[in-house]
Design a protein around this nucleic acid. Structure first.
Lengths: 342, 342
DNA sequence: GTGAAAGCGCTAACAT
DNA sequence: ATGTTAGCGCTTTCAC
């Protein structure tokens, strides 16, 4: 089972607690003793037993990141940053895939289930505000991105409304005037879909464009397939859109596929913009214009906030961070020569 | 710190070990007693303390999945299956991203680092066979996919040579005769690149086609950007290829992007095939023909093999599994009308 | 500056 | 079928 403190103590001819203090530095240790102990540690290859440490301290050193889709590259990229940050702070991060299902999400936030984690970073999708409020606050939770608002938890998410404004304004600046939105109110409580829809409507109004409900296409979820289906519908209309603002890049890519299948051109016939800036959009045909949130920033911040709560650092009120984002223009809006409209 | 066995025992008026046996079922318990204990457990909301259990048993219940790129959808999809299987077997799976770097890979296989995992599923990329052999075999390791061969570990990977045969034969069946391979010998020890290259050469020979070294393009890594760069090179040749077999789907997608940038058509001018069957290829323009390995199968099998080793089930020799794969044809090889060659 | 000892919650060997 | 008990390796008082 590996080398124990006891063996080091015997080897160095000191007591258990002295070795512990050399390892953890809670109390000062005489220089000479420290050297002897350190030698023993090096020779025997000691590594602390985390189970024992955690049994004592009541913590496990594990934090969970619960996301709706592991295979959405946005979350994969985010998770990478979070894992690194957690490791740097001495925590192991495990990922949980909720598939965006209410049942699974409830299991995740119900920490009584298995007390193996010290804290949770959660990207809610299906769960309601009330369900989040009802949660036993024994272990800290940080919310990211989509979902539930106005709850007593740290929350890290881009300003969805502002991001939508930028996206739509970009389309407007290209003289598009039948701008569709794909990803309106999927299921119930997906608040960020509502926010993006709201930003879309506001931006239209700001540009003096009418809101056409037929152009706000709902989807079941936010994957490529959803974008594909929604776009097919849109294209089947008497008056198809001349631009599409998609809930995210995956939806946008599905939509672009539908446009290609229909034999139309992007951006000449239809311009497309998404949100997320996943790598896929930098290599798609055409490449995808998008709103790029700072994923690295979000991942790190979420872990930092969570660890601060776990370690009881600041007993400050929940804080709400809106990480920066920027518009990245590519071919799907700027690529073609737009024919002059009559 | 949560409810403990002791509290349950007191509440139910039985001993510690009886409660333990109700929970774990190691020994039979009287029906009446069991009921009383179960009631106490339900009322007090008992959940076993894993740290304590693991301290006792010497195991942590955590297995690691170390992969070269978290944001390669192939691994994300594989990881999903592995996480589910691990959970079903009572293990928590944590992911480690090695970024395909030798340093990080060595850290991962050096279990002395932190004894937090009971076992490791590892997709080696940069590490050598010798380094794997030198590893302290204290904790079990299962190898998947790419990398190192002929080592005393369970190994799960598709038959790279056979898969390459199928891919190239498909291209040959389309009357292509200048078939390139992108992803030849990247860096040193990437054996599966060698195997796929070898399969490519064998298949060419089998079809009576010459091997042209200029058409076997090396890459630094196996991402979209690598495919893009390699394909640009290929297109700049006096005699560009009329078909491309890419090391994986990501490389294929990068290659397709290069073709699009050059204003050529797929598959009319150049047919493209990859390996992995990631979802991205089902929505790309054009959609990507690919060799589809059974990722679900691989993920589950890897976890099963690892857990069997951990729990010391069969002390059988390392076994080598080659999961099934199949050809999935899409537009990148079958889409266009191929002009009749003179 | 250092040591002794008490447990954290659990499992398993040993009793009954 | 059930109870008793000795630790697993560590942190943390409390002593000196």
């Amino acid at each position: 089972m590996g080398v124990s403190l006891k063996e080091i103590a015997a080897r160095a001819g000191v007591s258990l607690s002295t070795v512990s203090n050399v390892v953890n530095g809670y109390r000062p240790v005489g220089e000479e003793t420290r050297l002897r102990v350190q030698d023993a540690i090096d020779e025997l290859g000691y590594a602390p037993n985390l189970s024992a440490r955690h049994l004592r301290s009541g913590r496990t050193g594990i934090v969970a990141l619960a996301i709706p889709e592991l295979d959405n590259p946005y979350f994969a990229e985010l998770a990478g940053a979070a894992i690194r940050e957690a490791a740097g702070l001495g925590y192991t991060l495990v990922m949980e895939d909720t598939a965006g299902e209410r049942e699974r999400e409830l299991m995740v936030i119900d920490n009584s289930r298995r007390q193996i984690v010290d804290g949770l970073i959660f990207s809610p999708v299906a769960v309601t505000r009330e369900e989040v409020l009802a949660r036993d606050p024994a272990t800290p939770m940080v919310l990211i991105g989509e979902g539930v608002y106005d709850v007593p938890h740290d929350h890290i998410a881009i300003d969805n409304i502002a991001a939508s404004h930028v996206a739509v304004q970009h389309l407007v600046s290209l003289d598009r005037y039948r701008i569709a939105f794909i990803g309106a109110q999927a299921g119930d409580h997906r608040q960020s879909a509502h926010l993006r829809l709201r930003g879309y409507r506001e931006a239209l109004a700001g540009a003096g464009l009418p809101f056409d409900a037929a152009l706000a296409a709902p989807t079941m979820a936010f994957g490529r397939a959803d974008g594909l289906l929604a776009m097919r519908d849109l294209l089947a209309r008497r008056q198809p859109p001349d631009a599409v603002f998609a809930y995210n890049d995956l939806v946008a890519i599905g939509a672009m596929r539908a446009v290609a299948e229909a034999g139309m051109r992007i951006p000449d016939d239809i311009a497309v913009i998404g949100i997320d800036d996943i790598e896929e959009g930098r290599f798609s045909n055409p490449t995808l214009t998008t709103i790029s949130p700072d994923k690295e920033h979000i991942g790190r911040l979420a872990v930092q906030a969570l660890v601060a709560r776990i370690e009881g650092k600041p007993v400050q009120p929940p804080y709400d961070v809106q990480p920066p984002f920027r518009l990245v223009t590519r071919e799907s809006t700027l690529g073609g020569r737009r024919p002059v409209r009559p």
